[in-house]
Design a protein around this nucleic acid. Structure first.
Lengths: 159, 159
DNA sequence: TTCGCTGCAAAGCTTTTGCAGTGGT
DNA sequence: ACCACTGCAAAAGCTTTGCAGCGAA
């Protein structure tokens, strides 16, 4: 089943109205790996220019609060969003020097998470797990200016 | 050894100048569990009112990029910061309904993280690991307004 | 029909930045 | 003596919100 259909069913089951705007926003959002709020605004408006910025932000906040999308802090620029609902568990490893981002999968972590959540009587909805460090290239470089802003690029790698 | 001294040595080793302002900011920051940027500005200024807001933000950004400080998205209000450098590994479990935050320790996750980092040739500096869900009290409460106060029954949807 | 949702636009909040002077190494 | 760092304050994001009309259930 299409991911956006799963999301829409999920929202509907929670009594959230499925307006045309929300359907469009969800369908555009699931097409991305990561996206910023403004990128989504721009994207949605290429299809329907009448959709208001506020609507995108409100919908994004709704999806975030309900655990459908995760908010990622990649340390540079505005926060990135990701639709994690109905998607395989994965985490991020990032180099703080050059900005490289690696996505990895670790079923063992997922399993431990379930135990932790059960231990505290919680029902798990979503999670974020990010490792920050220095990649092989950057770890042996003595930075002249540690405050220099690195370039960002995403690389999807499966463990 | 005092934590702020360890942080200061770390910064020095990275060629970052240790100004009086930065020392003050670091020493105040390590005294908190979590803090917002504005809380730190206010705190620092009770000791030295001449420290500029921009300096606190710039220093916080520097500490964040170098992995000394973690930025936490607790989903409501501005981001929280935490000095995680030279501090025992711990993660967060949060209820998206009532905002309760539980800090838990999982040595197994820490161990797996080390394996992942080694696998990709990285040097680990810091990490964030957050689980979002519903606590025991909130998971059985049916909110008046689903869009404002999320209440999920995932198993019903997935089934 | 109800009341949650939307467009619009302004306000609000947080964070960033240019510039000239200061201070760490 | 360099040049990174700072104070100041304005500007620049980014996000939220009030309001009147609209539309999904």
């Amino acid at each position: 089943m299409k991911r956006f259909v799963e999301v829409e069913q999920f929202l509907k089951a929670r009594g959230i109205r499925l307006t045309g705007e929300r359907q469009l926003i969800v369908r555009r959002a699931v097409s991305y790996l990561h996206f910023t709020a403004e990128e989504l605004v721009k994207d949605v408006r290429t299809i329907d220019p009448t959709v208001a910025r506020g609507t995108v932000y409100r919908t994004l906040g709704l999806l975030h609060r309900t655990g459908v999308v995760e908010k990622h802090d990649f340390r540079y620029g505005p926060p990135n969003y990701e639709v994690t609902f109905a998607k395989a568990h994965h985490d991020h490893l990032m180099c703080i020097q050059c900005g490289e981002i690696i996505e990895f999968q670790e079923p063992r972590v997922e399993h431990i998470q379930e135990q932790v959540v059960k231990r505290y009587g919680y029902q798990l909805l979503s999670h974020t797990h990010k490792l920050y460090g220095l990649c092989q290239k950057c770890r042996h470089v003595n930075p002249k200016r540690a405050s220099k802003a690195p370039m960002l690029h995403v690389e999807e790698i499966v463990a």
